[in-house]
Amino acid sequence: MNDPPDTRSRIVSAAADLFYGEGIRAVSVDAIAERAGVTKRTLYYHFDSKDQLVAAYLSERDQPNLKLFQNWYRRAEGDAEKGVRIIFAQLAKAANNRKWNGCGFLRTAAELANMPGHPAILVARTHKKRVEGWLSGALSAAGYQAADDLARQVMLLLDGAFALVLMHRDPAYMLAAGEAAATLLRAAASRQT
Rank of each mutant, 00 (worst) to 15 (best):
M1P: 02
M1R: 10
N2F: 12
P5L: 14
R8Y: 07
V12G: 04
D17C: 08
L18G: 00
F19I: 03
I24C: 07
A26M: 08
V27W: 00
S28P: 04
V29H: 03
A33C: 08
R35D: 04
R35C: 02
A36L: 01
G37C: 01
G37I: 01
T39A: 02
T39N: 02
K40A: 00
Y45P: 00
S49G: 11
K50F: 06
D51S: 15
Q52V: 14
L53F: 13
L53V: 07
V54E: 02
D62P: 04
P64G: 12
N65G: 12
L66W: 13
L66C: 14
K67P: 09
R74D: 15
R75S: 08
E77P: 04
G78Q: 08
G78D: 06
G78F: 12
D79P: 01
D79C: 04
D79W: 02
K82Q: 12
I87F: 14
K93V: 08
A94L: 12
N101P: 08
C103L: 09
G104L: 11
A110K: 11
E111W: 15
A113Y: 09
A113T: 09
N114H: 15
P119S: 11
L122R: 15
V123R: 01
R125Y: 15
T126N: 13
H127W: 15
K128V: 15
K129R: 12
G133P: 08
L135P: 02
L139E: 00
Y144G: 00
Q145Y: 08
A146P: 03
D148A: 14
D149S: 15
L150Q: 03
V154P: 01
V165Y: 01
V165E: 03
L166R: 05
L166F: 15
H168F: 13
P171I: 06
Y173P: 03
A176P: 01
G178V: 00
E179G: 11
L184E: 03
R191E: 13
T193S: 09
